[in-house]
Design a protein around this nucleic acid. Sequence first.
DNA 1: GATGCGATTCACT
DNA 2: GTGAATCGCATCG
Length: 211
Amino acid sequence: MGRPTRGAPVVRWTSPPNAVARELLGWELRAGEVRVRLTEVEAYGGVGADPASHAHRGRTRRNAVMFGPPGYLYVYFVFGMHWCLNVVCGPEGEAAAVLLRAGAVTAGLDAVRRRRPGARSDAELARGPARLAQALGVDGTANGTSLVDGTGPLVLRPPRRRPVGEDIRSGPRVGVAAAAEVPWRYWLAGEPSVSAYRRHAPRRRPAKVQP
DNA sequence: GATGCGATTCACT
DNA sequence: GTGAATCGCATCG
């Protein structure tokens, strides 16, 4: 065991982000005793390449990790309350990342249930990007840590077998206004942990008050 | 400097 | 189905 077998899953980090996203399906994230198998991910591109990406308009303090080497964790804060996890990919210097949208808890169920007391089923424990981060016990302090060398709180491990192509579905990214037609969301068919698709909801302007 | 809204979730109608 | 919570960043002045 442990000997690499022919055709064993590998992440080709410098591939385009949508290819990396596809490859990451089925991989397992380990955070201590807790393990989560990735069932849903989304790809985001770099400067000028993907209007939906945090890196589209260039480097900022928030997205700086996206411009670094692949295999690192990019964690960002959204809506003033939630953390979302990304795997940096692409060559160093070119910003790209894969948003981790959902997963199935395969170990450490009790610990995750304690972290997410509101969850009504185990499938819901890590369904949605902010829930996934909470299930793994990860927040902004993990931004910029490695996912592959064991120095960070999370470690990414390959699945025993790569998911077969027929089980992989793709479609538009969730909640994205720009480039809404780009099908860079990937998920595993039939997995109950996959989140529901929601189109970006344009906000209604508050009605003008007549004086 | 002020304003508007987002790679979301949860409570509520 | 809708709205609120609440912070960082882009945009406009």
